[in-house]
């Protein structure tokens, strides 16, 4: 290892970082692309249904601006489809028991139930202001009649996912003006 500087190491090691990309299925063929690209190309979800995808996008966007465009729903959907031991989701850090899809599905059910009780509509149909008001109550475990995992936990996990797709990428660092300075950069700059 002696004498290996960062530049030299990165040059050699990037070649070995072959698992740095996400695989999305397009027309039966797996293509490596970013979650943002997958959303832009309308790649079908693997596990989520259309409403669940929309709900995750609406929640993500409320929590972290630009999360929708960054592909939060595609990111979560793709990660739910890989074995839990390979998952990059924050659910792993929150010590959830696989399958992680159970958490997301039940969270969306709880959000919609609370939203319908408060506003008479699913969360995705609320105005931006009402979505914000609802999330603020959810964050504080103050949504009346809430069922399932605590609202504050749902807030924390989805916020962390949204932070990942918006700020955890090399583009996210660039947008904040933070030098990324990788030893081994992710192969795909998502």
């Amino acid at each position: 290892m002696a004498g290996i500087g960062r530049r030299g190491f990165v040059k050699g090691a990037t070649v070995g970082a072959t698992i740095g990309a996400l695989a999305f299925a397009v027309g039966g063929v797996e293509i490596i692309m970013t979650a943002q690209e997958a959303r832009a190309r309308g790649v079908p979800f693997r596990l989520l249904d259309g409403h669940q995808g929309e709900a995750l996008e609406a929640l993500g966007e409320t929590l972290v601006p630009s999360a929708r465009e960054a592909g939060i729903a595609h990111f979560i959907d793709q990660q739910l489809s890989v074995p839990p031991t390979e998952s990059l989701l924050q659910a792993r850090i929150f010590n959830f028991r696989p399958p992680f899809a159970d958490f997301y599905r039940s969270a969306i059910v709880a959000v919609d139930a609370g939203s319908n009780k408060m506003f008479g509509r699913d969360f995705v149909l609320l105005s931006t202001a009402d979505q914000r008001a609802f999330v603020d109550l959810m964050r504080q475990n103050k949504v009346e009649g809430w069922t399932g995992r605590p609202g504050a936990l749902v807030y924390a996990v989805l916020r962390a996912d949204a932070v990942d797709v918006v700020y955890g990428t090399m583009e996210g660092y660039e947008a904040l003006g933070i030098p990324y300075m990788p030893h081994i950069p992710p192969e795909k700059r998502w």
Binding site: S87, R92, T169, P186
Partner: peptide, 8 residues
């Protein structure tokens, strides 16, 4: 890999 996401 130098990434908090991949680091998981």
């Amino acid at each position: 890999i130098s990434s908090e996401i991949w680091g998981r």
